[in-house]
Design a protein around this nucleic acid. Structure first.
Length: 475
RNA sequence: GGCGAGUUGGUAGAGUGGUUAUGCAGCGGAUUGCAAAUCCGCGUACACGAGUUCGAUUCUCGUACUCGCCUCCA
């Protein structure tokens, strides 16, 4: 049994071993995207981080004993704005964006959560929760709005380590005439005729952002659950407000709070103004595989800022290529894995799982994978292969087998040309005509073709700079 | 201004109160006609100052610098 230790934002320690409320149903809620556009690279980080945790929990407690919920926020002013400027319906935009998100996150190896609730499908529970908060004196209606009264919850600020006084003193908070206190936040706000809205006791309107997660988590996971995750920019105000609402509604809410650090690009915050803003889809379209994106993400601990760089992308490509070569060399395929499973050789490496269980130390786990990859037999490599699967770097062994073999996507003429040159080179070598042999090899190298001689037999593979146009003249 | 995180060898990046991180790059060797690939080996690090300690990169305090959040950007 792998022990799990998680750094809890609430207590700011990872001292205590993680113990689920019910080990037959370990429950985790992670804040999902607002669906109005393609997910940028930063969006992928929490998805991958919590996907690793999801996989770890399933490994430890069993696939059937984990419930993972990640929502879609499909009602939001950004969505409304997008609809207005494009002339498309909100439903079209959110449906399309949700599918994009699932496609892109699937490409980086994320398993879909058990539940992916859309906020608009949970309006009734939200209204009920707001009514309850009003009845209990924690919220009030004013001018069509319903606001949460921060002063009614003494522990407000405990998660993020802020006091209400400090925040009011230094920060810019929206002051509105209908607010009793500047820190009070919106649970419900009125909608005009052009804005999506639902009937409610306070008139036609729509929910505030924070109440969505509180209501959906309660509906799907119950009044108390194990883990709540998200990016650390959500710690305040979003998660602070979720806690306030849920606790005041009488829910115990989440035991452990996890927050991943932000992503940067080449040392700078990714932003449109700096021109270093790009989406997951942009990378995929450029030919960067989802596995490469995932490997780069895993190479930095989730609680540290992670820097996406070209250098890391290249290193990850090389690492994955090396690892796939190792597996290919030992004949790994779906069938191999089946045989290993049947023989009882398909098991997790305890050390790897231990490292992973120590607050999701994915860089440590990757280091362990490097060590495990030195295995000399298919059996000895089983923990390595198993580890790759656990980290989500290989999902389909038959696909891994195919992608490791050469020449799949090449135009028909290329392989024969290369093979012909290699035969000519072999002849030259047999004649000890080293000048000619080296000329042919240089030619292939110039095209980015890597020539490998093992036991006198020459073979080739596409290198990172593979460029078949150099071979055109030799057709 | 408030809150928080970080500063490790050429580089990326873990970790630890005394003992090898690991990858990439580099160097040496094996191998090779020479290379490549592969394998083996090597190197050196813990921002600065003070304190605690037999001993600190690891704990405590301070300093400097970097970064994030406080604005419905994950």
């Amino acid at each position: 049994m792998t022990d799990i230790y998680l750094y809890n934002t609430k207590t700011r320690t990872k001292g205590q071993q993680f113990t689920p409320i019910d080990d037959k149903n370990v429950r985790m809620y992670v804040c999902g995207p607002t669906v109005y556009d393609r997910a940028h690279l930063g969006n992928a980080r929490p998805v991958i981080v919590f996907d690793v945790l999801n996989r770890l929990l399933r490994h430890v407690y069993g696939d059937k004993h984990v419930t993972y919920v990640r929502n879609f926020t499909d009602v939001d002013d950004k969505i409304n704005a997008r609809a207005a400027e494009s002339g498309r319906s909100i439903g079209d935009i959110t449906d399309e964006t949700i599918q994009w998100f699932l496609d892109d996150m699937g490409a980086v190896g994320a398993i879909e959560p058990d539940h992916m609730p859309r906020a608009t499908a949970y309006i009734a529970p939200m209204v009920a929760m707001i009514e309850d908060l009003i009845a209990k004196g924690h919220a009030y209606a004013a001018e069509g709005h319903v606001l949460f009264s921060v002063s009614s919850y003494a522990e407000y600020g405990a998660l993020s380590g802020r006091s209400v006084d400090d925040m009011i003193a230094g920060a810019r908070v929206e002051v509105a005439p209908y607010k009793r206190d500047p820190m009070d936040f919106v649970l419900w706000k009125p909608s005009d005729a052009d804005t999506p809205g639902w009937d409610s006791p306070w008139g036609r309107g729509r929910p505030g952002w924070h109440i969505e997660c509180s209501a959906m988590a309660h509906d799907l996971l119950g009044a108390q659950f194990d883990i709540h995750g998200g990016g650390n920019d959500l710690t305040f105000p979003h998660h602070e407000n979720e806690i306030a609402q849920s606790k005041c509604a009488g829910h115990d809410f989440a035991n452990v709070w996890l927050h991943n650090e932000m992503l940067q690009v080449e040392g700078k915050k990714m932003s449109k103004s700096l021109g270093n803003f790009f989406t997951v889809r942009d990378l995929l379209d450029q030919g960067v595989s989802g596995e490469v994106i995932r490997l780069v993400m895993l190479s930095t601990h989730y609680r540290k800022p992670m820097d996406w760089t070209e250098t890391k992308r290249k290193e990850a490509e090389k690492t994955l290529s090396d690892w796939m070569s190792v597996l290919q060399k030992h004949g790994y395929s779906a069938k191999t894995v089946e045989i290993l499973k049947a023989a009882g050789d398909w098991a997790a490496d305890a050390e790897l799982m231990g490292v992973l269980g120590n607050d999701l130390n994915t860089p440590g786990a990757l280091a362990r994978l490097h060590v495990l990859s030195k295995g000399r037999t298919a059996e000895a490599l089983a923990p390595f292969a198993h580890g790759l699967e656990t980290l989500g770097l290989v999902s389909d062994w038959s696909a891994a087998e195919a992608s490791a073999s050469d020449g799949d996507d090449l135009e028909d003429w290329i392989a024969p040309v290369i093979d012909r040159l290699l035969v000519e080179r072999s002849t030259a070598r047999a004649d000890k005509n080293w000048g000619e042999a080296d000329r042919l090899r240089d030619l292939l190298n110039a095209a980015g073709v890597q020539v490998t001689d093992i036991a006198g037999e020459a073979s080739w593979a596409q290198g990172p700079d593979f460029d078949p146009s150099v071979l055109e003249a030799l057709k």
